[in-house]
Simulated assay, not measured.
Amino acid sequence: MRIVKKMASAATIAVFLLCCYFIVSSGSQDDCVYAATGSNLTVPLRYKLKESHNLKWLKDRSVIFYRRRKQVITGKNNDVDSTGSLKLTQLTKDKSGRYRPEVTNEDGINVGGNLQSVHLCVLDPVKKPTVTMTCIGAQKHVSFTCNIGQGETIEWLMNDEQLAEKGKTVTRVAKDVANTHFSCNVSNIVSSEISLPVQQDCHKPAFPETLFGISIWVFVGGGAGIVLVLILIVIICCIQTKRKRRLRLKDERELRLQWASQEQQHHQQQHHHQHHQHPNQNHSDQHQHHHAHHHHQQQPAGNTGPRQNRTKQPRTQQRPRAPEPANGQPQPSPRRAMQASAPAGNGGEEQPPPLPQPRKKTPKAPKE
């Protein structure tokens, strides 16, 4: 009876140890090394190999790679790198499991000891989520819903700032979020994706904040700057025009004063010239009148013959000259005197020529 009880207790202990072995060998989800499908992963060996060592890699209980010295017996040579680490490429879900290495010598004795294994868990990456918007309560409230799969975590973003809500739906007052964008960030252990931002259209403000994706205040500021520049340009143009007009009026005024001064000087010079010319002319006229009277007396009375021509007069009779000045210097002609005096009176400027004076007519001798 005692023997049976000992055998039963021994069997119970064996079952318990076997269960512990399977639990340890299979591992739990807590020690998983997660990887996304389609990605690559390298499981490190963490042991320095020698040329005489044999290397073996097991997935759960199956041998997936075995190399005796330098000869590959199971698997491919490129399944491991130069250090003996296992290379896994293009992962799929069926490659999930525990990977464990073994290192032995030429006699098949384990020299690596209990090397560290890796429990690989392959998961699909999350898909890009979408956000739908729904108006609630006569368009006074708005609800945003994030469409996701199973086992994924949700984070809500409002204008790229994280919110406290973690559920699939977020509700807000439409008026309070009139120009706000909502998006959700969905993630699992291996990947994450953010949805496109969505803006509510339940409540439409009278004055939009954006235009063509640019803030309306940018357009307002730009328009105000352009108007200010135009006003400054108009003011500068008005100042320039007024200044040019003032300068033109000043030049015209100076020109009129200059012409008036020139005319006044011209009249004074002409009056002075006539004052000096009149005595000479009177003397010449008297001399010509006396000569004509003497010629009339030389003709005999009753002479009805032809009138003698003036050209036939003797050359000894010359035209009287103007009297010489008292100082003995010759007096310049009136025209030359006026031309010489004009530059001195007008500061060196050229004066217009004087007007021609009418010639004094000498009285003709009466016919006999």
Rank of each mutant, 00 (worst) to 15 (best):
A8H: 13
A8D: 14
A11E: 14
I23G: 12
S25M: 09
S25K: 09
Q29M: 15
C32I: 05
C32W: 03
V33P: 06
V33G: 09
Y34L: 04
A36P: 01
S39C: 04
L41M: 08
V43M: 00
L45S: 00
Y47V: 05
K48Y: 08
H53L: 00
H53W: 02
K56N: 06
K56M: 11
K59F: 04
K59Y: 02
S62C: 09
S62W: 10
S62M: 12
S62P: 04
I64F: 01
K70S: 13
V72Q: 06
T74M: 01
V80I: 15
D81T: 07
G84P: 02
L91Y: 04
T92R: 07
K93N: 13
G97R: 00
Y99I: 03
V103E: 00
N105S: 02
E106P: 06
E106I: 08
D107E: 15
N110Q: 00
N114W: 03
Q116C: 00
V118W: 07
C121T: 10
C121W: 10
T130L: 08
T130E: 12
V131S: 04
T132H: 02
K140H: 07
K140C: 02
V142T: 03
F144M: 06
C146Q: 12
G149T: 05
G151E: 11
E152C: 07
W156C: 00
W156D: 03
M158V: 02
T169M: 04
T169N: 03
T171K: 01
R172D: 09
K175D: 05
D176P: 06
A178L: 05
H181L: 07
N185T: 11
S187N: 00
N188V: 04
S191C: 03
S192G: 15
S192D: 15
S192W: 15
P197V: 00
P197Y: 02
P197E: 07
P208N: 03
E209S: 14
T210E: 13
F212R: 05
G213W: 03
I214Y: 15
W217P: 02
V218T: 09
F219G: 07
G221N: 15
A224R: 02
A224H: 01
G225V: 06
G225I: 03
V227T: 14
V229G: 09
I233V: 05
I233C: 05
T241N: 10
T241H: 11
L249D: 10
R253Q: 14
E254T: 09
E254Y: 12
E263N: 02
H266K: 05
H267C: 11
H267M: 13
Q269V: 08
Q270N: 11
H276T: 13
N280E: 04
H287E: 13
H289I: 06
A292C: 09
H293P: 12
Q297T: 10
P306W: 02
P306G: 09
Q308W: 06
N309V: 11
N309Q: 14
T311I: 13
T311E: 14
T311S: 13
K312V: 05
P314W: 04
P314R: 08
P314K: 08
P323N: 11
A326W: 13
P332F: 02
S333W: 06
R335P: 12
R336S: 14
R336A: 14
R336Y: 14
M338Y: 07
A340H: 11
A342K: 05
P343A: 08
G345R: 10
G347T: 05
E349K: 06
P358M: 03
P358F: 03
T362G: 09
K364L: 11
A365Y: 11
A365H: 10
K367Y: 13
